[in-house]
């Protein structure tokens, strides 16, 4: 499972283990699964898609401004706004 965190300046929105997250990167959307190579990307305003398991329909969260970081601990999305 992929450890996923969504943080805004005001609070920690999500911190959970999920199957996959699709992030709206500045240069295109990208999906992050467990074991993804270390990556750092800025994000554009758009929808974050969270797949709890492989089969379910994704949960979407709208995010604005910020960046995403993937390291050995998982995926961290820092967004200025998340709904």
């Amino acid at each position: 499972m992929l450890h996923f965190e969504l943080v805004t300046p005001e609070r920690l929105v999500r911190s959970e283990d999920v199957h996959m997250v699709v992030v709206p990167g500045t240069e295109g959307d990208f999906g992050v699964l467990e074991g993804h190579a270390p990556l750092m990307s800025t994000i554009r305003d758009g929808n974050l898609e969270i797949y709890k398991t492989g089969a379910t329909t994704p949960e979407t969260i709208r995010i604005e401004g910020g960046f995403a970081e993937v390291n050995e601990r998982g995926l961290t999305v820092l967004a200025e706004k998340a709904e």
Partner: peptide, 13 residues
């Protein structure tokens, strides 16, 4: 620093 292994990180852009 969160990127302990600097060599492997992909930066986008």
């Amino acid at each position: 620093p969160s990127t302990a292994a600097p060599a492997a990180v992909i930066y986008e852009p």
